[in-house]
Design a protein around this nucleic acid. Structure first.
Lengths: 128, 128
DNA sequence: GTAACTGTACCAACTGAAATAGTACAATTT
DNA sequence: AAATTGTACTATTTCAGTTGGTACAGTTAC
């Protein structure tokens, strides 16, 4: 269920947050669906349960999941997750472009770069 | 000369690397020009000289500057820094777009996002 | 030549965030 | 009742980043 990079600068608990959001965005985790138990997931990944707990607490703060003592953790249902994640993705892209404006890249170059990404992406998925 | 974020997740020495590259990209530091001395810059910013040293060592590894014991550190002259930095900027943008493809954003959305960034940017510089 | 400046190289110590380990408790399910 | 759930708390470890201090080699200026 998870592939983590233990050497990354990004903390494990944040990587877990990202992965969960990813699964939701992909539809692999649907609204209301139950997530793996804290301890079970920790054992599966091979990390401490406190780290999972930290990730889940974060996700709950963000409104992505809802955790109930004794029952479990579930994908929150009060928001269109996909739309929110898409918005967040676009905002991240905007931030990176903005940060790199100092290098005087043009809008045309950015568009060409983006188009190239999509070109390569569709190549890798032909016939899918 | 520098504005650093001491609360950032990004280490200070990396922020310094970025700033130096930025100054070169902006033309404020030209090829062959001498950089501030390690200790002087450390004192000015208010950090330890070892941190500056770490940043300069990194920049030399990247070929951005050349340091000579006894003389000082200078902007390297064997490359077109601006072109290199622009290329790096575009690559970073490409990476972020690629990473966010999982959220099924479209090329049109990315282009619109980029255009918006440039629109806001030019607004803030009218008459410049 | 020597004093003052350069970059460089150590090393010991501190700091803070992240992660671990272990235990405990409350709520729910079976 | 037993097992499972999320949650809480403390102590400990780990590691990168940073600091502080010292030392040395090469260059510049007097």
């Amino acid at each position: 269920m998870f592939e983590l990079d233990f050497r990354s600068r990004k903390p494990i608990y944040e990587q877990i947050c990202d992965k969960i959001k990813e699964l939701i965005a992909l539809g692999d985790l649907k609204t209301g669906e139950q997530l793996p138990a804290v301890r079970a997931l920790a054992k599966e990944i091979g990390i401490n349960h406190n780290t999972i707990q930290k990730a889940f607490a974060q996700l709950e703060r963000e409104g992505v999941i809802i955790s109930i003592t004794g029952k479990g953790s579930f994908v929150s249902g009060d928001a269109d997750h996909k739309a929110v994640f898409r918005q967040g993705a676009l905002e991240e892209i905007a931030r990176v472009i903005e940060k790199n404006l100092i290098y005087h890249i043009t809008l045309e170059e950015v568009i060409e770069t983006a188009a190239e990404v999509y070109r390569k992406s569709s190549e890798g998925q032909e016939g899918k």
